[in-house]
């Protein structure tokens, strides 16, 4: 730039060198901070253009964690519902077997009384199954799931709706409980009627109770298939949230994390340049040699 180098120019050259030194020191500190924190992007000014994307990633990772837990809760509720309904369908199957056997009329009163007692027992089992809970949450009480679905008389005291659990970011949800009246009321009634027919009715009366038992069993099986479908959706979502969390974390790391090897390499290069510049600064400080010879 200058044709004749004046000593003030030399001073300014030193100022330039010092300014460069400061810039290098700042960069060394930045690289050091990045290596220590593991983050190359901490604040919006580090990457303003991609900041909304980074914020969305951070948000989504949080969302996936919650949704995964929600799906986990739904899975445990639906898992218990499935095994309960399997039990319930076994109960109804057994009741049907008894009904079919006694509808032929070749049994004495004592046998029928004993069979009626068995049906009473099956009805009680069914009531117990209908009042199944997971940690105090009654699966078949509808939304009134903080209390048993049926009272001791067999009257439904739950609500006629189905609770759901949100498992998707768009509010997508799965059923995590059932209207017990829809599932069990017919079964309980059918079992009570069958027991009565066993005690007091003719074989033909018992025969008449087989259809209601079949229909009630269908309610149980239908509900079980709904629970199975919901269970599958919840497990799919849980698997998806797990893999999404991995992908989102990888994407976030790509945006904000430092590569330790790159940091080390840059740090080494910068410290070498810094040392070289320091030596240069020391040498360029000589001013005039002529004055010393006057």
């Amino acid at each position: 730039m200058s044709s004749s180098i004046r000593s003030s120019a030399l001073l300014f050259r030193n100022a330039t060198t010092q300014s460069n030194l400061m810039k290098m020191r700042n960069r060394v500190n930045t690289v050091k901070d990045q290596a220590v924190s593991g983050l190359k992007v901490r604040e919006a000014s580090d990457a303003p253009a991609s900041w909304p994307y980074v914020s969305d990633l951070v948000d989504s990772i949080g969302d996936q964690e919650v949704l995964g837990k929600n799906a986990g809760r739904a899975i445990s509720m639906l898992g218990v519902a499935d095994s309960t309904l399997r039990e319930a369908s076994s109960v109804m199957k057994r009741a049907r077997e008894v009904a079919v056997r006694f509808s032929t009329g070749s049994f004495n009163d004592e046998d029928r009384a004993s069979a009626a007692s068995e049906i009473d027992g099956l009805r009680d089992s069914m009531l117990d199954l209908a009042n199944t809970d997971v940690g105090g949450r009654y699966i078949f009480s509808g939304n009134a799931y903080d209390a048993p679905a049926f009272d001791s008389t067999g009257a439904y005291v739950g609500s006629n709706d189905t609770p759901t659990i949100t498992i998707g970011e768009d509010g997508d949800s799965v059923t995590a409980g059932f209207d017990g009246a829809e599932v069990f009321l017919d079964s309980l009634t059918a079992l009570e009627d069958l027991a009565d027919a066993m005690r007091t009715g003719t074989p033909a009366d018992i025969q008449d109770q087989i259809d209601p038992v079949d229909l009630a069993m269908k309610d149980v099986i239908t509900t079980r298939s709904i629970a199975g479908g919901q269970y599958k959706r919840a497990t799919d979502v849980q698997t998806l949230t797990e893999s999404l969390t991995v992908v989102l974390n990888e994407s976030l790391a790509e945006e904000v994390a430092t590569d330790p090897f790159e940091s080390y390499q840059e740090f080494t290069q910068l410290t070498q340049s810094l040392e070289a510049t320091l030596q240069l600064t020391a040498r360029s400080n000589s001013m005039s040699t002529l004055f010393s010879r006057i």
């Binding site: 200058s2 004749s4 000593s7 003030s8 050259r13």
Partner: peptide
């Protein structure tokens, strides 16, 4: 920095020249 350097080369003191 460039301007400072230019100004120094125009207006600065060269000690050899002064000697």
């Amino acid at each position: 920095l460039d301007l400072d350097e230019l100004n120094a080369s125009l207006s600065g003191v060269n000690l050899d020249e002064e000697a």
